[in-house]
Design a protein around this nucleic acid. Structure first.
Length: 577
DNA sequence: GCCGTTTTCGGCCCGACTGTTTTCAGTCG
């Protein structure tokens, strides 16, 4: 059982307890446990079986027993009991914006509402206003929220690649405005999460009203809401909500820190502050004893006041960064400027849009010193069918290109070879041996199950001519679940054989995920950050690969393609042993 | 339900907003 499934069960259980009127902190304990389980880099099911679940922070004896029960029997007795009292569909009702557990329970008791459909019926029939404490406004909000849920689909979140360029363009435009002083993207876009709900901008200004209107009038904005001294709310043409907050300069650091989040990071920060006799809010840091409030113009001073080194925004997820900052042990994160080359790209030979020449020129323009051309292999099934002969000709073509190439840049003859269901590769070894660089990836038969998939990938890792494993879990964010593979075993084998593992920078993939990348790199796996570009433009997806690498706490030394090609070659499996 | 730089009991993050209330509970980020 996956961590995400266990976490979902505990979140549901938390909601059921909340519906049942349990004390708030008990509910909180279940939610915190769900969060910790979801973020755990190791399989919590295994920990529970080994009796080690209590090693996780926030998991005590009771919760450990419940995890074990869930893993071994598929259900938690306490949950089954509560589900006898409240239908499962009532959990959905608590997720409607504006309706929490208290109101859901009230509507369940008073009106018999137990599902989203019944909630809608009750609102339409104007029966909600008959419940004490609720009124007609709640009915309006419920209907609007239900319509929104329907329209936005299950999550309503957008990929970072859909949000960050818009946020960057708006921030740039505001910075160029004469009334602006400081402008920064905040929220999840600043943390470079995989998906974002909206865009938060924080600014200081000499003329706040003018800056707010500048946003409202920007060409990207389709619907301008209220714009005033405090900021503006708008929606872009592609449906992204933009919230600009204009704040006083003396508390800019406090506000930027607060609105960058994450929620978990802020909670942990405030807990630390309380232990120091301080109280943190977006308005400043108060000394509880004296009541005196200090404001901070820059974020570094907020962290400094709490005895912490500056925490890079990508790390602010409540996954250990506060303890590390307190100990002065935060890693010096890899940056995009550290990247010397891209080791995964496609051309028109398989399914890419650009020629070898075009991709090479674009890579040079990016300042790289190498680019691996890794078209799909023979059995791929879509794009062109790159036969062994075609690949042999391509190898000659690359060698010829390099002879006439300018100094300081070279193309690498490579391939993205399919890992077939039995773990074998679909080119003969003699041909692979001719290549400079071999990525092995799974593209077919995803649903073979965890054990089989793990063996399949391990076989490729053991192959002496495989340099790197591509997009390990095959996930497409929001569209396709990762396929099941034992990342710990993969990592252990990769360390032993010297095989590298990719962080694929395609914003739909970002695979390894930050959690898996942190786990793998922590085990000693050498990571490659690649784009898998299929055209010139998507070579720019390196920013998303680097975002994941940074969120995985990676230093430059852990990323193979921060080295020169000569330096990288020395790390390869075919040069080991 | 968890946990210990005050603690094995008694705490457990902060503030804004909304809608319903006549002083506040619920919800949200």
């Amino acid at each position: 059982m996956r961590n995400a499934e266990i976490a979902d069960a505990f979140n549901d259980l938390a909601t059921l307890y909340e519906l049942d009127g349990a004390v708030r902190y008990r509910v909180l304990a279940y939610r915190e446990a769900a969060r910790v389980i979801r973020q755990s880099p190791v399989a919590v099911a295994d920990l529970a079986r080994e009796g080690r679940a209590t090693e996780l922070p926030g998991i005590g004896k009771t919760l450990a027993e419940k995890i074990l029960a869930l893993v071994e029997s598929g259900e938690i007795p306490a949950m089954a009991k509560l589900l006898g009292r409240y239908p499962r569909s009532l959990i959905e009702v608590t997720r409607v914006p504006g309706i929490g557990a208290k109101r859901a329970r009230l509507l369940f008791d008073e009106l018999g509402v137990s599902s989203l459909a019944e909630l809608r019926e009750a609102a339409v029939a104007e029966r909600i206003r008959g419940v004490r404490g609720l009124g007609p406004k709640v009915e309006d909000n419920v209907l609007a929220a239900l319509d929104r849920l329907g329209a936005e689909g299950p999550t309503g979140r957008l990929l970072l690649a859909e949000v960050l360029p818009v946020a960057t363009e708006l921030a740039t435009a505001l910075r160029d405005h004469p009334a602006s002083q400081e402008v920064e993207i905040a929220g999840s876009a600043r943390r470079r999460t995989e998906t974002c709900k909206d865009i938060d901008l924080i600014a200081t200004a000499s003329d706040p009203g003018a800056l707010a209107h500048a946003l409202a009038e920007h060409p990207l904005i389709a619907v301008a809401g209220h714009a005033g001294e405090a900021g503006a709310r708008s929606t872009t043409h592609n449906g992204v909500k933009v919230d600009l907050r204009i704040v006083p300069p003396d508390a800019y650091g406090n506000l930027l820190q607060h609105f960058t989040g994450s929620a978990e990071h802020n909670v942990q920060l405030r807990e630390r502050a309380v232990a120091m006799g301080l109280s943190v809010s977006e308005h400043g840091i108060a000394d509880v004893a004296s009541g005196k409030v200090e404001r901070h113009r820059v974020e570094a001073d907020v962290y400094g006041r709490l005895g912490l080194t500056y925490i890079e925004h990508e790390l602010r997820e409540g996954t250990g960064e506060i303890a590390a900052a307190a100990a002065g042990e935060l890693p010096d994160l890899v940056t995009i400027d550290d990247i010397r080359g891209d080791l995964h790209s496609h051309t028109t030979l398989s399914d890419g849009k650009a020629t070898l020449d075009e991709m090479a020129a674009a890579a040079r323009e990016r300042g790289y010193s190498y680019l691996a051309i890794t078209d799909h292999s023979a059995s791929h099934g879509f794009g062109n069918h790159v036969t062994a002969d075609a690949l042999a000709r391509r190898i000659e073509e690359v060698r010829g290109w390099n002879e006439g190439a300018p100094r300081g840049f070279r193309l690498l003859a490579g391939s993205e070879v399919n890992i077939l269901p039995d773990g074998s590769l679909d080119y003969p070894d003699e041909l692979l041996a001719e290549l400079d660089w071999v990525i092995a990836s799974v593209h077919t038969a995803f649903r073979t199950g965890r054990a089989e998939m793990t063996e399949r990938v391990l076989a490729a890792i053991e192959h002496p001519l495989v340099d790197c494993i591509g997009h390990l879990t095959g996930r497409l964010i929001g569209r396709r679940e990762p396929y099941e593979v034992d990342v710990e075993r993969v990592a252990a084998a990769a360390v032993r054989t010297g095989t590298m593992v990719e962080i694929n920078g395609n914003p739909n993939r970002r695979d390894l995920s930050e959690r898996n990348a942190r786990l793998a790199a922590g085990a000693g796996v050498r990571i490659c950050v690649n784009t898998d570009a299929h055209q010139v433009r998507t070579l720019g997806n390196m920013v998303y690969g680097i975002a994941t690498a940074r969120r995985a706490w990676l230093r430059a030394a852990q990323v193979a393609n921060t080295r020169s090609w000569r330096g990288l070659e020395r790390l390869r499996p075919r040069n080991l042993s």
